[in-house]
């Protein structure tokens, strides 16, 4: 997994609550057997018109957000299906971090496994950042994982919570399977004791 330490990037606001993973990557794109090739289908049904042209009314298609790498969204982002194709699509599109008042559990776990940082901030902070992103062309944020801080261009910093282990994995790009396998003796002992 790619490590995440610091990131500076342009912000795109998606003013919707309860964005489900069916919207992030619709089911017709889940038939691939590879981990790649999902970025172009991110938000497919919102992003493209019936004729396949980009939908000019969808925020990701606004030229001013063309190279955005930080997504700001409403509460409960990533609800629904457990499909990891959702964080794959977000990452392959170019997103490094997602800011929202809250996230669905499975989606948040899936993000950590793919080097994407899901950052939960209070709803009023998200609303304010989103408004600023609407009002300010080229608006950028800096994210410092070590400091657990989102830093605005004017120097205002918003602290966020993350589990110690998730933070350690992201900072180091850790292979979690390798981590668990170092405790193989504990697993074997558990199996013997439980006669599994």
């Amino acid at each position: 997994m790619e490590a995440f330490t610091e990131h500076v990037g342009r912000v795109v606001p998606l003013d919707r609550i309860n964005v489900d993973t069916d919207q992030i990557i619709p089911k017709q794109f889940l038939k691939r057997i590879e981990r790649t090739g999902f970025g172009e289908f991110l938000f497919n049904d919102w992003r493209y018109l019936e004729n396949g042209e980009p939908n000019p009314e969808f925020v990701l298609n606004f030229p001013r957000y063309a190279d955005a790498s930080i997504l700001i969204a409403g509460a409960n982002f990533g609800c629904g299906s457990s499909r990891e194709h959702a964080p794959w699509a977000l990452q392959q599109y170019g997103f490094k971090a997602i800011l929202a008042p809250s996230f669905a559990d499975i989606f948040r776990n899936n993000c950590y496994k793919n080097g994407i940082l899901p950052i939960a901030l209070p709803a009023d902070v998200i609303a304010s950042l989103s408004q600023t992103a609407h009002d300010t062309e080229g608006y950028q944020l800096m994210i410092d994982l070590e400091e657990q801080s989102v830093i605005c261009p004017d120097g205002t910093a918003h602290a966020f919570e993350i589990g110690d282990f998730e933070k350690y994995c992201l900072l180091n790009g850790l292979d979690e399977i390798g981590w668990t396998l170092q405790f193989e003796a504990d697993i074997a002992a558990y199996e013997n004791q439980s006669r599994l």
Binding site: S82, R83, T180
Partner: peptide, 20 residues
Amino acid sequence: FGIGTSEIEHVLATQCLLQQ
């Protein structure tokens, strides 16, 4: 409970999950 593909790989390899 449901898990993502990285966790599927983790369970296949270790029969365990890292869980809070």
